[in-house]
Design a binder for these strands. Structure first.
Lengths: 253, 253
DNA sequence: CAGTGGTCTAGACCACGGA
DNA sequence: CCGTGGTCTAGACCACTGC
């Protein structure tokens, strides 16, 4: 009738809040700047703290914000592009590899890994832990599973564990001829150990890159790499990848 | 002194809850089965509904659960692998392409896209909307930006918009020689329009795949594809990719 | 219309970081 | 020690689905 339609679809408060904050971040804040604390922000927008947090959570998921307990909420730098698809035909650990070997133990892998490696569920495999750092920040943690059959000549004189052992396993692996590899990317949440290494809380969103290395007609090694989803943009292909900042839908301008 | 240390690091309730639920899903439920509602579940575990929801949220993020308002919470099938890296040297829309052209308009793209295409910020480009379906479910929505200079001979007799127009733009694009392409993957949250097409709520987690198509020494087209993060595993490389179900850390068994 | 998940509130206490 | 973000509670109402 005479009433104008105020809101056909009442937008959730946290969604609207996210839009407002996002625009404020673009125009009024610079990278690294610290925001008012959550209680103040909530009061300023006239919402409960939980609602404000729902908006902040999404912005953090999108890599716009960084929150740290005991410190505060800061404006995050643009996501860093990390190459994961280059050197399609190189083994891990060759010269120029960005990964840093941290440790190596021999243990029974998770069932799914054993299945992919075609080893018995309780058969121990070499498990190399590596970490990846970019711009001074840890961006990824990796577990590389190498069945004993892929490195038959691994010398017993090497250390039984530790970085030296890790390098020894990689060195032996390089003696095989790499026939190909394939990868997959999916969303996951950080396990406790990965979270610690990535300087995040357990459950933080991560991009899990699983890579299978093929040699001698079978899976010679399997890598499960966990990247921080908030700070990383994974790049594949010929060159560095594109930096597209996914903008929210345009308002009538 | 005599007291045993009950919990050195008191695990958050929702984290423990998630572990318990996850194990129950493995052993006591089958795919598609519907769980008790949130109020009952919360009561059963003796926690507030918000806490229970925090656990469910994570499990949904990991693709273990599927929640739908008005319906309930069901056990999700394993993530479907969708190939995004094959045909490294093919244009979009060639025979065999899994994408379905939905529409095409001519409009000014977001600023970041204009920058990548090296067009003026207010210059209109062909914007093709396509959708991708797998196993009967929508898995991705794409916006393909094609500057007018990439399709100079686009006939005026074609429809000004709609699927026919989209096919015409793609057809013209194929006349260029593709020199290469690169992609990047990052985490995002679904915009309202994408969310609708993907049958999710706005803000749902998505994997954003940005692909740049290179021809004649510049970016001839740019694709921004939004995949459902809860149901998809993106695969790259030689073959189909590996199915690794990232298991939480082992408890002493 | 009844039942589901989604949003929101106004509190409380805890864990962590830095001064 | 104080201030921060992280967890948790016990409610309330809303939007959607299917009967």
């Amino acid at each position: 009738m005479g009433t104008t339609q105020l809101e056909t679809v009442p937008e959730p408060k946290y969604w609207h809040l996210k839009t407002v904050l996002s625009e404020a971040l673009d125009s009024e804040f610079s990278v690294g700047e610290i925001l008012p604390n959550e209680r103040d922000l909530a009061a300023r927008f006239g919402v409960a703290r939980a609602t404000l947090r729902q908006a902040l959570e999404q912005l953090e998921l999108e890599g716009r914000l960084q929150r740290r307990r005991g410190v505060g909420t800061t404006v995050a730098p643009p996501r860093v592009g990390v190459a994961v698809g280059t050197e399609q035909h190189a083994w891990p650990g060759l010269a120029g590899d960005v990964w840093q070997p941290a440790d190596c133990v021999q243990a029974a892998p998770p069932a799914a890994v054993a299945a992919a490696l075609e080893t018995a569920p309780d058969e121990a495999v070499h498990t190399v832990r590596r970490s990846r750092v970019s711009h001074g920040q840890p961006v990824a943690a990796e577990l590389l599973y190498v069945p004993a059959s892929s490195v038959p000549d691994l010398s017993a004189i090497d250390a039984p564990s530790g970085p030296a052992r890790a390098r020894a396993v990689l060195r032996e692996l390089h003696r095989l001829e790499l026939e190909g590899r394939d990868s997959s990317v999916e969303l996951g949440s950080a396990r406790a150990d990965d979270a610690k290494e990535l300087d995040r809380l357990p459950g933080a969103p991560v991009l899990v890159v699983t890579t299978r290395f093929l040699a001698a007609g079978r899976t010679a090694a399997l890598s499960v790499a966990t990247y921080r989803a908030d700070t990383c943009r994974l790049t594949f292909g010929d060159s560095g990848g594109v930096e597209i900042h996914q903008t929210p839908e345009r308002r009538a301008s």
